[in-house]
């Protein structure tokens, strides 16, 4: 038996919006600790790692570890049938379920709807993600990061991110011309609009702008985003999901031949 409830479906809708364009399907691994999803996009250029801890749910029960193969477009369709303020309960009866139920309850309890979704067999092994001490870790407003990715995507396919003591610079160029956005570190680190940089050594890396734009679908989840970079390894873009978990995107760099 698996059962997990959230007081408001809005958070689950945002989580799904953050991954559904990048991934077609994924296994939701449910354990006593919570729900984890790890999956790569079709081209295996990026990897999504999602964690929702059990203590962040209003109610959570997972008698046996289970893996639910989910078509994310189908789940998104179902989640769109909920109101943001609805309580949502995810329920699977068997230890090896072939379907999962979503129950939405309005705040006044006057409307209860349930949707059953067929599960899939997804043959996907997990990847081991090495612990890394990154050369640069930048925290910045998530809306600013989304704006930069959107603006610069108009100029070129590749985005160069350079990080140094002075700040972080995003650059691109293409047929139309070139574009640069520089952000300096702010003095007040506690505010939502703060830009903070922890640097061991400066880094310059090139990434496909298209994927970065996909990652910014997570913007509604968190006011801040964290970018972690080291030379010639994947960029880590991380959004917190309240106090209950986080969504991490890894993006393989483009390397000069």
């Amino acid at each position: 038996m698996f059962e997990a409830s959230l007081a408001q479906s809005a958070i689950l809708k945002k989580v799904l919006d953050a991954i559904k364009d990048l991934l077609n399907e994924a296994n939701f691994e449910c354990t006593d600790d919570g729900i984890k999803v790890q999956a790569m996009d079709n081209s295996h250029v990026s990897l999504v790692s999602l964690e929702l801890r059990s203590d962040g749910f209003e109610k959570y029960r997972c008698d046996r570890n289970l893996s639910m193969g989910v078509n994310l477009a189908s789940m998104a369709k179902i989640m769109r049938c909920s109101s943001n303020s609805d309580k949502v309960t995810i329920k699977a009866q068997d230890d090896n379920p072939d379907k999962v139920s979503f129950i939405f309850e309005s705040s006044n309890q006057e409307r209860i709807s349930d949707y059953e979704m067929k599960l899939m067999d997804i043959d996907a092994d997990q990847l081991g993600i090495p612990d890394t001490e990154y050369s640069c870790v930048v925290k910045m407003p998530s809306a600013e990061f989304a704006r930069i990715c959107k603006d610069l995507n108009q100029f070129g396919e590749s985005l160069v991110i350079s990080c140094s003591k002075e700040g972080i610079k995003f650059s691109t160029s293409g047929d139309l011309g070139s574009a640069n956005v520089k952000l300096a570190q702010t003095t007040d680190a506690d505010k939502d609009d703060a830009v903070t940089i922890e640097m061991r050594s400066p880094v310059t890396l090139t990434f496909a702008c298209r994927y970065l734009n996909h990652f910014t679908k997570a913007t509604p989840l968190s006011s801040q985003v964290q970018l972690s970079m080291s030379d010639e390894i994947p960029l880590l873009v991380e959004y917190r999901i309240g106090d209950m978990g986080c969504i991490k995107y890894y993006l393989a760099p483009k390397i000069d031949d």
Partner: peptide, 14 residues
């Protein structure tokens, strides 16, 4: 020119 690397270039199967 630049080459797009894949995740497999960096992360191993667990």
């Amino acid at each position: 020119t630049t080459t797009q690397k894949t995740i497999h270039n960096y992360f191993e199967w667990a």
